[in-house]
């Protein structure tokens, strides 16, 4: 099981109960359907195990179709897992009473990538926030909700709030809309915010503002983030720990510093190498190994290690054996059959 590494830590008993603990999470979709020939099952999330502690930022990175957004939807209860467990402060979701479930939903909120479609175009900003406050049960009476909505707006930098309260989403810039999205996520007083590519659609200058805002909110409220991104440079800045996903599986996880400077899984290193560096003196694309081939679709998952067809280090056993996520360093684990060689200095060609 790829959960081994996480479980081992739990057994030592020293670590406090994580805010969220995901174990053995699977999600399969029946795909196709329109044409019988193409009907197959897609394994979007495959045996995923992650834990997120209060007040920390855990980032999930990977390319399109790697299952990171499905993971988010499973944790938000927008979809039901095929199997596996999500524990909130030690209690599995499946064992929760109706009231506990409601509390869980309230404590786990979301910020989406597309600030345009994540706000109801027909609602004023004030209404969006007061609705969020009352529906989630954070505030009981309407007058209190209005006052609280103003506070939230000021908190996320929509100031003076009075000038924003009656505006419609389309009257705002992308960055301002994303601030509203953040304010709405904060309304129910969450403990975890799942941020699904929250800055990917934003311009560079605005992106920095939003990332700073997210960091300030974390400092002030010690909220935890599950930060989902395809952009490694953003993850490098915001996350404490990171998990790299490939075709539904976690291939490497650990502290950001360690994963980014000493990547063990070849895929992690390939991703780092492929990320453009904004410094012509260190431009790397011309030199370093660029992985060939396409990201395979989840319907055609390769046997053995899912990365082996593209992996520059693949050996015969990689075709048949599915590697487990095993410790390779301080809180750092990788699912690669050649992990030990990698730690000892095996480099990409």
């Amino acid at each position: 099981m790829s959960g081994t590494y996480e479980t081992k830590h739990a057994e030592t008993g020293s670590a406090p109960t994580p805010l969220i603990e995901v174990t053995g999470l699977h999600k399969q979709f029946a795909s196709g359907g329109r044409f019988r020939r193409s009907r197959r099952s897609v394994h979007a999330v495959d045996d995923l195990a992650i834990r997120i502690h209060a007040g920390e930022t855990f980032a999930l990175v990977g390319e399109s179709g790697c299952g990171k957004s499905t993971t988010a939807r499973l944790m938000l209860s927008l979809q039901q897992p095929t199997s596996g467990d999500i524990r909130y402060k030690g209690t599995p979701l499946s064992m929760m009473s109706e009231a506990e479930r409601r509390d869980y939903r309230r404590r786990v909120q979301v910020v989406f990538q597309d600030s345009n479609s994540s706000l109801n175009p027909r609602k004023r900003l004030g209404t969006i926030l007061t609705t969020a406050l009352t529906v989630s049960g954070a505030v009981a009476d309407a007058r209190r909700a209005v006052a609280r909505a103003h506070e939230l707006m000021e908190d996320v930098g929509l100031s003076p709030s009075a000038s924003f309260f009656d505006r419609y989403p389309h009257e705002l810039s992308g960055g301002q809309r994303q601030r509203v999205g953040i304010a709405r996520a904060l309304a129910p007083e969450p403990e975890l915010i799942i941020a699904d590519e929250p800055v990917s659609a934003l311009d560079i200058s605005v992106r920095a503002q939003i990332l700073q805002l997210l960091q300030r909110i974390q400092r002030e409220r010690s909220v935890a983030y599950l930060f989902i991104s395809h952009d490694l440079s953003v993850v490098r800045w915001v996350a404490h720990r990171v998990g790299v996903m490939y075709l539904g599986r976690l291939v490497e996880t650990g502290p950001v510093e360690s994963v980014f400077t000493r990547p063990v899984h070849p895929y992690t290193e390939v991703l780092i190498n492929a990320t453009p560096v904004a410094d012509p003196e260190r431009a790397q694309l011309r030199h370093v190994h660029v992985v060939s081939g396409d990201v395979p679709s989840t319907t055609e998952r390769p046997s053995g290690c899912p990365f082996h067809p593209r992996c520059p280090l693949a050996v015969e056993t990689c075709r048949s054996e599915v590697p487990e996520l095993l410790p390779v360093g301080e809180a750092h684990a990788a699912a690669c059959l050649r992990a030990t060689e990698r730690v000892e200095g095996l480099r990409l060609p």
Binding site: R102, R105, F112, N120, S136, R184
Partner: peptide, 13 residues
């Protein structure tokens, strides 16, 4: 399928 509807669900509407 739009995020604003997902948000409403997440808020418990």
């Amino acid at each position: 399928a739009l995020p604003y509807v997902d948000s409403a669900r997440v808020l418990g509407m």
